[in-house]
């Protein structure tokens, strides 16, 4: 208990000295990003953090305690902004780790007994390490969120649903279909069916290299969902290998209309929607 109070007391009394030294350290650190952050901003952040830190450390150095919540919230805030600005993890964590030296200095000056000194330094270093790790974790979390959001945006981009004709939609699928992508694709298609009132949708898988059980099941589910909404689906572009895989996997496609090519599927769709295609006279004479 006494050790904690010492640290708490020193931090409280030497607030201004620590702040000055700390900001100085940060300004001289190699990880400083003058391009991304103004000096005044850094000074302001440091001042606010040290204030919260001083307050929290009065009640102990277990950062799991609720008293540390304002400190952690504040760290969350600055980490988020630094991730968005493009800081690296070490650049972000320097904010905490650079506080070590100024704190050590003031502790060394204030504590005379070597035993106490070691104990106090130990408490301080453990505390700052914990906060530093916390920042690293936050940094990574924020990065993951950014990546996650970008993935979602990519998914949206990679699934165009096109209208071929009145009442006929086509969904040309290209590339590997994983479960998440298939799901987005399917939701998009169903949404477009509602918007356009299309009676028939052609799902073309010519550009899909492989179809596993999960993807096949997703396709079937989409066809079933479209049927519940009152629309039909045709699956086209099933290549020989994929036909073989589908049969080997034991996926039952008997309820679904399948066609070898998008063109065949389009003809069927035209027929079903009551449209006919005829060659114009000019083309006929040429042929």
């Amino acid at each position: 208990m006494e050790k904690r109070t010492k640290l708490a007391e020193i931090v409280k009394n030497q607030h201004d000295v620590i702040l000055n030294d700390w900001v100085e350290f940060q300004l001289n650190a190699t990880t400083l990003r003058r391009d991304l952050m103004k000096e005044s901003e850094l000074r302001e952040q440091s001042r606010e953090f040290l204030g919260l830190f001083t307050q929290a450390v009065q009640s102990g150095s277990d950062i799991g305690e609720t008293i540390w919540k304002p400190v952690k919230d504040f760290l969350g805030q600055i980490t988020r902004s630094r991730v968005l600005l493009g800081f690296t993890p070490s650049e972000t964590a320097t904010f905490i780790f650079s506080l070590k030296q100024p704190l050590f200095d003031v502790i060394r000056a204030a504590v005379k007994d070597p035993k106490d000194l070691v104990a106090d330094l130990w408490t301080t270093t453990t505390l700052l390490d914990k906060l530093g790790l916390y920042v690293m974790e936050l940094h990574q979390q924020n990065r993951e969120e950014v990546i996650h959001r970008q993935q979602e945006e990519l998914l949206e981009l990679s699934t165009p649903v096109v209208q071929l004709f009145e009442n006929i939609l086509a969904l040309p699928l290209i590339g590997t279909l994983d479960s998440a992508r298939t799901q987005v694709v399917m939701e998009n298609l169903l949404q477009r069916i509602v918007e356009t009132g299309a009676m028939i949708s052609i799902i073309d898988i010519t550009g899909v290299p492989t179809v596993d059980t999960l993807v096949a099941q997703h396709l079937l589910k989409t066809v079933a969902a479209a049927r519940l909404m009152g629309a039909d689906c045709i699956i086209s572009g099933i290549r020989p290998q994929i036909a073989q895989t589908i049969v080997h996997l034991g996926v039952d496609l008997s309820e679904v209309t399948t066609k070898a090519t998008l063109a065949d599927a389009f003809m069927i769709a035209l027929q079903r929607t009551g449209a006919t295609v005829t060659k114009s006279a000019a083309t006929k004479t040429k042929g």
């Binding site: 399917m186 939701e187 169903l190 949404q191 069916i193 509602v194 009132g197 009676m199 589910k221 079933a224 969902a225 479209a226 049927r227 519940l228 909404m229 009152g230 629309a231």
Partner: peptide, 21 residues
């Protein structure tokens, strides 16, 4: 659409019921 997707996942395909948009 969301209802249709959920119904299919639930395992209910309403066989014998006609549907329209």
């Amino acid at each position: 659409p969301a209802v249709a997707i959920t119904l299919v996942e639930l395992g209910l395909s309403l066989p014998g019921v006609r549907t329209a948009l």
